[in-house]
Design a protein around this nucleic acid. Structure first.
Lengths: 216, 216
DNA sequence: GTCTTTCTGTAGCGACCGCTAGGAAAATCT
DNA sequence: AGATTTTCCTAGCGGTCGCTACAGAAAGAC
C-alpha cells in the first residue's frame, strides 16, 4: 500500500532534534506536525465533543492506534492542539499587546487583527479558545479554555493598569471595565464571525469599540 | 407506522383544566409545563448535544416514552424550549427596545438588564441562545440559534436606524456598527457570565460600552 | 362490570462513542 | 541472516446515544 516515508521529518519533528538518528523500529508513515494541524482544524471547526476520534482519524489520514500512539488520548491531543493554536493563530493578541507602545494602541491593533483573523477563509471562523469547549460533558476540558479566556482578560487589565501607573491614562481609569469590554468585544466578534459576519463589518465594530477610550 | 396524530396532545390539554374534559385515556402523571421548564434548565446549562435524553428524563422525572409522547423527539423538544426561553428569560431585550423612547436608552437598559439576568444565580448563567447550540453535530439546530442571534442584531440595527431617520441620532451614524457592537457586548457578557464574572463587573462593562454613543 | 383510549415502565434496538488487543509490516542492531 | 524495536491495520471491546415495541395500568364510555 502507500508508503510516503520522508525519513528526515519522521523522527525529528516530534521533539528536540538530537542529531542522532534514533529511529529503531518502523518509521512513522505520516508527518506528526501535519496531522496535528489537521486535528487543530477539525477541533477548531466543530469543537471538542463534536469532533469524534473517527472524524480525527479520517482528516488526519491515520488509523486510531497510530493516533493514540502519537498523541495520547483525545483529551491529550486536544490539550496539544490548544497549545499550538495559542502559539500560532491565536498569538496575535499577545503580540499586539507586547509590541505596541500603549495599551490603547495594543488593544486597537488586537481588535483590528481579530476582525481579519476571525473571518479568514483559509481556516475555520472565530476563535478556537472561545468556542471549542462550550457545552462540554468534560468539565476539565471546559475549564481548560475558560482559564485561558479569563487569563486573557486579566492580561488586558494588567496592561491597562500599567499605562495608568505610567500616567498614559487618567488616574481614575476603570482598568477592569476597559479590559472586560475589550474581552467582550473580541468574544462577540468571534461569535459573529461564526455567524457569518464579514471582515469589514467586524472592522467597523472594532473601530467603534475603541471610541470608549478616554480623550478620543 | 407511528400514529401521533391527535392534535390535542401537542399542547391543548397542557393546562386547560378538565373544564372541557377532553381526556379519554389514562391521564398524564406529570405537569407538562413543569417538565418543559426542567428541560429548559438542562439545555440552558449543558447545551443541546451535551444534554442526553437520559439526562432529560432524569431531571424531568418521567420515562423516555412519556417524553417522546408529550414533546416529540429531542430536537422538537429543544425547539419548544427555545421558544419558551425567548418568550420568558430572553424577552428582556425586546422589552427594553420596545418600551424605551430611544434606541440608546433601550440598548442601555438591555445591557444593564443582561448583566443582572446573565448572572442570576436562580438559573444557569449566560444566554441559552448564545451558548446552547455551539459545536453541534446537527447543523439544523446550530442554524436555529444562529438565525435568532442574527435576527437580534438586525432588530437592534433597525431600531437605531429608526432613530436616525427621526433625527434623534446624527445623520452620519453607523447604525450597523452600533448594532454589531451592542450585539458583541451582550454576547461577550453572556460568555463572561459563564466564565464566572460577577453582576457588578458586567454592569461596569455595560456602562462603559454605552459611552460609544454620539454626544455622550 | 367490559370496552376503548391514553399513558407509564421495562427492556432493548441499531449506531456510534472512545479506546485497545493482537498480529503483520518495516525499519535498525548484532 | 536473524533479532529487536516501533508502527500499522483489522477487528472489536464495553458503554452510551436517540429512540421505540410491548404490555400493563388508569381513566372515560358503554
Amino acid at each position: 500500500m502507500r508508503y510516503k516515508i520522508s525519513p528526515m521529518t519522521t523522527g525529528r519533528d516530534t521533539q528536540t532534534q538530537g542529531g542522532t538518528g534514533r529511529t529503531r523500529g518502523r518509521p512513522r508513515s505520516f508527518d506528526r506536525a501535519t496531522a496535528l494541524e489537521k486535528a487543530l482544524m477539525a477541533f477548531w471547526e466543530h469543537g471538542y465533543e463534536a469532533t469524534s476520534v473517527s472524524d480525527l482519524t479520517r482528516v488526519m489520514g491515520i488509523g486510531a492506534p497510530s493516533l493514540y500512539a502519537a498523541f495520547g488520548d483525545k483529551r491529550t491531543l486536544f490539550d496539544e492542539v490548544v497549545r499550538v493554536y495559542a502559539g500560532t493563530h491565536g498569538a496575535f493578541a499577545d503580540r499586539a499587546l507586547a509590541e505596541e507602545p500603549t495599551a490603547r494602541e495594543g488593544i486597537g491593533r488586537m481588535l483590528r487583527e481579530a476582525a481579519a483573523e476571525y473571518t479568514d477563509p483559509s481556516h475555520p471562523y472565530g476563535c478556537l479558545i472561545v468556542h471549542a469547549a462550550t457545552n462540554c460533558t468534560s468539565a476539565e476540558v471546559e475549564a481548560l479554555l475558560r482559564e485561558r479566556r479569563n487569563a486573557g482578560i486579566a492580561a488586558l487589565e494588567s496592561r491597562i493598569r500599567a499605562d495608568v501607573v505610567a500616567g498614559l491614562l487618567p488616574a481614575g481609569t476603570d482598568a477592569a471595565a476597559l479590559a472586560r469590554h475589550a474581552g467582550a468585544v473580541i468574544q462577540g466578534m468571534s461569535q459573529q464571525a461564526r455567524d457569518g459576519a464579514q471582515r469589514e463589518e467586524l472592522e467597523a465594530l472594532a473601530k467603534i469599540a475603541m471610541t470608549i477610550w478616554p480623550h478620543d
